[in-house]
């Protein structure tokens, strides 16, 4: 079964073809462009390119798997709108999976933090134990991620829930410095981190970052939906994992114009 995987939850727009068999799956082709402002322009040509490269046509597809984010909304919607419309046009199911889960799965065994850039100096994050999600997905300031994880791990020496709710990066930076060079607050809760957000805020997290694993891989997205694909489960409405409400302010009382 030929499956198209799409993800636009990070600065990368990614299209991949993955062959799903009864007992495994293998990558056929993958194309990725890293440009946070170009998902709308890059994704469709990438889909066309992976199909052409592998010698397939759209009608050869059995299913589509799309990363639901979390991720910056405008780019994220490009992948989901594309996946939903292709699924509808082809009469094949589209499935959504958490984009962070794809990174968590690809990171393999051990305790791993996955973090992607949420802009506004925040990250989308989740933690994984042997590929299975433990905490998240959530959005927070990088410094507060360390605090939240330490608290969740029940560390009595953690800087405390107060820091997580209010103090923010400044407060934590001081705590981290006082805790000894090279020992981030994540130490003890996760062994390593992956995702472009982990790389960007590596100094805050203070655990080793897997620099080869920055964006959700196509094969991992498909693996997360493999059961549904094999079982020909009905397609799903692709709703983004927004995690943030729209910025919208109700108008205040009208300002006088007479002086």
């Amino acid at each position: 079964m030929l499956v198209l995987a799409l993800d636009t939850a990070t600065p990368a727009s990614m299209a991949a073809l993955v062959e799903v068999t009864a007992d495994g799956l293998f990558g056929v082709a993958e194309s990725r462009t890293v440009d946070p402002r170009a998902h709308g322009e890059k994704l469709a040509p990438e889909i066309a390119a992976v199909l052409a490269e592998a010698g397939y046509r759209p009608r050869d597809l059995t299913a589509i798997v799309a990363g639901l984010g979390p991720g910056p909304f405008t780019g994220l919607r490009v992948g989901l709108a594309t996946a939903a419309s292709m699924g509808q046009a082809l009469g094949i199911p589209a499935y959504g999976v958490c984009s962070l889960d794809a990174l968590g799965r690809a990171a393999g065994p051990g305790r791993v933090l996955i973090a992607t850039d949420a802009r506004r100096r925040e990250v989308y994050f989740a933690t994984y134990a042997d590929g299975a999600r433990v905490i998240g997905p959530e959005v927070a300031k990088p410094a507060d991620v360390a605090v939240l994880l330490a608290a969740a791990a029940g560390d009595p020496a953690a800087p405390g829930k107060t820091a997580a709710t209010g103090a923010g990066a400044g407060g934590l930076a001081g705590q981290t410095a006082g805790n000894g060079a090279g020992t981030g607050w994540l130490a003890g809760t996760v062994d390593r981190a992956a995702g472009e957000g982990a790389l960007k805020y590596g100094d805050v997290f203070g655990v080793p970052v897997e620099e080869h694993l920055l964006y959700p891989p196509g094969a991992a997205l498909v693996a997360l939906a493999a059961e549904k694909i094999r079982g020909a489960a009905p397609g799903e409405q692709l709703t983004p994992l927004y995690l943030r409400r729209p910025d919208a302010v109700e108008p205040s009382a009208r300002k006088p114009v007479l002086t």
């Binding site: 709308g40 405008t74 919607r77 709108a81 419309s85 292709m86 509808q88 046009a89």
Partner: peptide, 20 residues
């Protein structure tokens, strides 16, 4: 509106691509 336009453009590309 940039973000609104992008949803329609992405979907249109999906339809065009899939239906050739």
């Amino acid at each position: 509106l940039a973000g609104a336009l992008l949803v329609g453009v992405a979907a249109a590309k999906g339809y065009a691509l899939a239906a050739e």
